[in-house]
Computed example of a mutant assay.
Amino acid sequence: MRKRMAAGNWKMNKTATEARALIEELKPLVANTDVDVVFCVPFISIIPAVQAVAGTGISIGAQNMYFEENGAYTGEIAPNMLTDAGVKHVIIGHSERRQYFGETDEDVNKKVLKAYEHGITPIICCGESLVQREQGITIDWIRQQVKIAFQEVTPQLAKLAVIAYEPIWAIGTGKVATTEQAEEVCRKIRECIEEIYDVSVAEEIRILYGGSVSGANAAELFSMPDIDGGLVGGASLKADFAKIVNS
């Protein structure tokens, strides 16, 4: 049985002081859950966030990392810097990284492989634009993203990965894919993983849905057989995130 996950992507929000305050507010609200709870906070907030969740079941993740160990890469962060700070998860290939910073599928694959080298669990993002959905190429597009992301990843490591399906047209827009749309794509992702590896890997890997998830729609989304939780944006910045966790 796959363990459910509620991961918050805080994006470029909250100072370190504000991050600690929000975590302190959320801790008692998510204390009695059997869901994996992850807060992916801005780099500057990682260390105070790790300190704030000490002794709880909450994990702290990063929103990005580079695929080199060190060097002249101004503005980037290395995987060993994240692990030294206490990071357990990293979001890789978010649509905003692809759109605003030009990340490619090949970049995503390099980052995934580097995350595994350092024992960091990758949360690998995939998703289509509204134009791509209207053109009827959603599944083809996402299969390509998934297949390239998992190149050279062994079956044993693949089982540890988390995949987040986020339709780009639903991120921060208030629009949500219908439960049926979300489940269809997540099921196709699982089928793609089965093609790359086998049934056992496909059954173990966790697939999240992201895109305007809220306390109001979380329970219905997470009741689907191929949706194992959510990668949550704006709603993770409020105490209401607890409603999503407890859904």
Rank of each mutant, 00 (worst) to 15 (best):
A85N: 06
V108S: 11
Y100F: 15
K188D: 10
A242L: 03
H94A: 02
K243N: 03
A235G: 03
A62H: 01
G211N: 03
G86S: 02
F150D: 03
S236G: 04
F222S: 00
D105W: 11
E96C: 01
E204V: 09
K114F: 07
A161P: 04
I148Q: 13
Y165E: 04
S247L: 02
Y209R: 04
I23E: 01
Y66A: 13
D140R: 15
G57F: 07
C192T: 10
E25P: 05
E194C: 09
V90R: 03
L130F: 14
I148M: 12
G71P: 06
H118N: 13
I137W: 08
E24W: 08
I244Y: 00
I171F: 03
P155D: 05
I58Y: 03
I77L: 10
A21R: 12
E166Y: 11
F241C: 01
N32S: 11
D84S: 07
A31R: 09
A158P: 07
I168S: 02
A149P: 09
M81D: 09
K27F: 05
V185N: 06
T56A: 05
K11S: 09
L113D: 07
Y66C: 12
G75Q: 13
W169H: 09
I91C: 05
D84Q: 12
A177F: 06
R143D: 11
A16K: 06
I196E: 03
G119W: 12
K27Y: 04
G102Y: 11
E69V: 15
G210V: 04
Y73T: 15
E18K: 09
F101G: 10
K243C: 00
E152T: 15
G93M: 09
T17D: 14
A164C: 14
Q151W: 07
E204D: 14
R20Q: 14
G57L: 10
I58P: 01
T15M: 12
L22W: 00
N217M: 00
E134Q: 15
E220Q: 12
E184R: 11
V176F: 08
K111C: 07
K11D: 06
A177Q: 03
V162E: 09
L208W: 00
V131R: 14
A19E: 04
K111D: 07
A49P: 07
I189W: 02
L237A: 04
Y66S: 12
A52T: 04
T104F: 10
A242V: 02
P167A: 12
V53M: 04
T104P: 09
A239P: 03
C192A: 02
W169T: 11
K243A: 03
S59Q: 11
L130P: 12
Q51V: 08
T17V: 14
D198S: 14
V146G: 04
I205M: 05
G55H: 10
E204H: 11
Q132D: 13
T17M: 12
